[in-house]
Amino acid sequence: MSKLSYISPDGLRVDGRRSNEIRRLNIKMGVSNRADGSAYYEQGNTKILVTVYGPRESVNSKSLYDRAVVKCEFSMSSFSTTERKQRQKGTDRQATEIQNLIKQAFESTVHVQLYPRSQIDIFVQVLQSDGGLKSASINACTLALIDAGISMKDFVCACNTSCIDGIPVLDLNNIEERSGGPDLLLSINPQLGGVISLNMDSKVQQDLFESVLDLGVKGCQKIFTILSDQVKRYSTELMSNQQQLQQS
């Protein structure tokens, strides 16, 4: 009954962040040996594992002669939420939505024409869910695809923003997501500067929209710097390993 106050008078949110701060990112690339590429991605308490297989020959006849097809399978572990849920047969609405989102985002960013008649499979597994699933999945996929060595135009960085009590806030956690405010998901190509997707649930006031969007762009840029840092570090690590191998 008592309405939660999502932002305290001194500007701190329920988890102690300020309105324009993202949660802590913890990233690990190349976690699965079997897959062609993989990444483990933590954003606060949201934990996701992504594995990428491909590009490989299409199993069924749905291949296209001039480019590769991106396929995505999204699944939540039954232990990922506070209340254990019985898995239903087939995919639920949320999963389908995220699958399509990822498919579209990466079909436009991966150089698909380099891999004709083939398919790229992305498997997203949510280990723990604490809000911001869509954006976290997209970021994790970017890392896994890079790990798989698939040629891409740019990163895809995503971030969700909202507007609580008239204040735009960045990167919602689970509590804030349930506040019923708008949920704006923005994914961009941070270097090329294009918008990949822009989804919004619920309504936002027209004059506030601009500032919410601005904040989203800032958030994506921030995530990009962290991701690219991590990718560079991982690559140098790989290189040095290779050099060591060659020397020995």
Binding site: D10, L12, V14, D15, G16, R17, E21, R23, R24, G44, N45, T82, E83, D130, N173, N174, I175
Partner: peptide, 14 residues
């Protein structure tokens, strides 16, 4: 009975 976990960020700039 469920376990609810929320993360908290502790700051040094308050």
């Amino acid at each position: 009975v469920i376990k609810v976990v929320n993360e908290i960020y502790l700051r040094d700039d308050i």
